[in-house]
Nucleic acid binder design. Structure first.
Length: 466
RNA sequence: GGCGGCGUAGCCAAGUGGUUAAGGCGGAGGUCUGCAAAACCUCUACUCUCCGGUUCGAGUCCGGACGCCGCCUCCA
């Protein structure tokens, strides 16, 4: 088998082949930084993080670019409402997002370009489009002339006639065609603006991505990603701009993640039904969100609810349960059982890889990881030699790492309670030795209330944080 | 209205037309344990929204109905 990837452009799974051998160029649309990011943004970033990790695991080098839209209508409006410079506002939310990237355990992109830092390239690209007759200027605005793009609508499956007919867009009489869209917007007083051949103004939304891709990745890229809400108009327009300018197909594979749903609706800023990344991380560990994303296919919608969060938390705990230090020291089990363990793990590992090769089927892949979890526990029950179990655990840890999951919860910084907890456990075990069960149980219950879970095994007492 | 997607157990969710429909969560019973917890074992969808069709054979392909979601306006 070879890597398969679903391509929105063809609406089919296709065999993944890169333009340059062993190098993947991937551009993923990032957020417009006018407000706090929510878990839906995180879902998208996580989905492409996993794709990238798997490609890297397969031996590819990935050149990964994610943009920040740091100038647009919403940012300007927001800045006006709060009476702050929109550029500074963007700066603040970019800072927050950068922290989320670290907190969520996302691999850092190769470059994080910002619209405001790409203005000369954006202007150059627009000039190129104007020179080729694909764009026209009117009173300081520049519009893309959609009718010059013969295959406009190919990504989203739309036809121009139908779009003109059912135009819900407020028609700007100055445009040649209602479907034409802005490449450059003339500045209004007090707005951030840059000088251009058409007067002072700022870029339209779609053009920044075309310009950034051109600069940071080239005329053609392997994967272009983003949420499926961007298919139209954003990605359709990007294709129109880039391909009209270069005469080449922009991206080989268009990959789109499904939307995070909250209470049966898409999570979005405009509806206001959202949970910010900050809120989520204040209550849960980052890997819980990763587990939620891994638990269903990236192209499907993902339901966010108390119950799905709890389920993901428990599932993560289950995965990690197989990685606890091996305490059994018997080692008396026969070699046949050890071989059996290795065989089962190898079979699961192959199924895991096959699932991932099939359009990054993380939910299927996770299922095979849980099979490994079970056989590790079985091996422990059977008293297999510790070194055989440890090597099985190494396999599991490695595959979890491919998905970006950590094998244990990161320790809280500056927490020095461990020594005290162990002191209490020692005291409790003395009480147990004296069969003073009531007192011993009280210590266990009180620690449980504090989030510390005590487990008495034959080999001794262990504890962990809930 | 146009385009796209989805409907699998109490919940989440995978599923190349073909032996017993993954896995997780939850639940029930058992083993272990002073009691727990964890782990292990057993059980928890004779059936994949419904109705037709193609086929020797369909959750999987085709048509239709119903329901839900996304995009068509800023959106990951």
């Amino acid at each position: 088998m070879s890597q398969q990837i679903y391509n929105t452009l063809t609406r089919r799974k296709e065999t993944f082949e890169t333009i340059q051998s062993r190098l993947v160029t991937m551009y993923v649309c990032g957020p417009t930084v006018y407000d706090k990011a929510h878990v839906g943004h995180a879902m998208s970033a996580l989905a492409f993080d996993v794709i990238r990790r798997y490609l890297e695991h397969g031996g590819y080098q990935v050149r990964h670019v994610m943009n920040y839209t740091d100038v647009d209508d919403k940012l300007i409006r927001r800045g006006r409402e709060l009476d702050v410079n929109p550029i500074h506002l963007a700066e603040r939310y970019i800072g927050e997002f950068e922290k989320h990237i670290a907190d969520l355990g996302l691999l850092r992109a190769t470059v994080y370009p910002r619209a405001t830092e790409e203005i000369p390239r954006i202007i150059a690209l627009i000039e190129r489009l104007v020179a080729k007759g694909h764009a026209y200027a009117i009173e300081g605005d520049v519009y893309f002339r959609v009718k010059t793009d013969g295959d406009y609508g190919k990504l989203s499956g739309r036809r121009l006639e139908e779009m003109r007919a059912g135009a819900r867009i407020a028609v700007d009489e100055r445009k040649e065609d209602p479907v034409d869209f802005a490449l450059w917007k003339a500045a209004k007083p007090g707005e951030p603006s840059w000088e251009s051949p058409w007067g002072s103004g700022r870029p339209g939304w779609h053009i920044e991505c075309s310009a950034m891709i051109l600069r940071h990745l080239g005329e053609r890229i392997d994967i272009h990603g983003g949420g499926n809400d961007l298919i139209f108009p954003h990605h359709e327009n990007e294709i129109a701009q880039s391909e009209s300018a270069t005469g080449q197909p922009l991206a080989r594979y268009w990959a789109h993640n499904g939307m995070m749903q909250l209470a049966g609706e898409k999570m979005s800023k405009s509806i206001g039904n959202l949970v910010t990344i900050e809120e989520f991380l204040a209550r849960h560990e980052a890997d819980v969100l990763r587990m939620m994303v891994l638990g269903s296919h990236y192209r499907s919608p993902l339901t966010f609810s108390d119950e799905t969060v709890t389920q993901a938390t428990s599932a993560l705990e289950r995965l990690r349960s197989a990685l606890r230090p091996v305490t059994s020291a018997s080692g008396g089990a026969d070699a046949g059982k050890a071989e059996n363990l290795e065989r089962q793990i190898e079979a699961s590992r192959k199924r895991f890889l096959a699932a991932m090769e099939d359009d990054f089927n993380t939910a299927g892949a996770l299922g095979h990881l849980f099979d490994i979890v079970r056989v590790i526990h079985q091996a422990c029950e059977q008293g297999l030699a510790a070194d055989r179990i440890t090597s099985a655990q190494d396999q599991l840890r490695l595959l979890m790492g491919v998905l970006g999951l950590h094998s244990e919860r990161p320790a809280a910084a500056g927490d020095r309670s461990a020594a005290f907890i162990e002191l209490l456990i020692d005291m409790r075990n003395e009480l147990r030795g004296l069969k003073l069960w009531a007192l011993a149980d009280r210590i266990r219950d009180r620690l449980d209330d504090l989030g510390v879970l005590i487990e008495d095994a034959r080999e001794g007492t262990t504890w962990r944080r809930r």
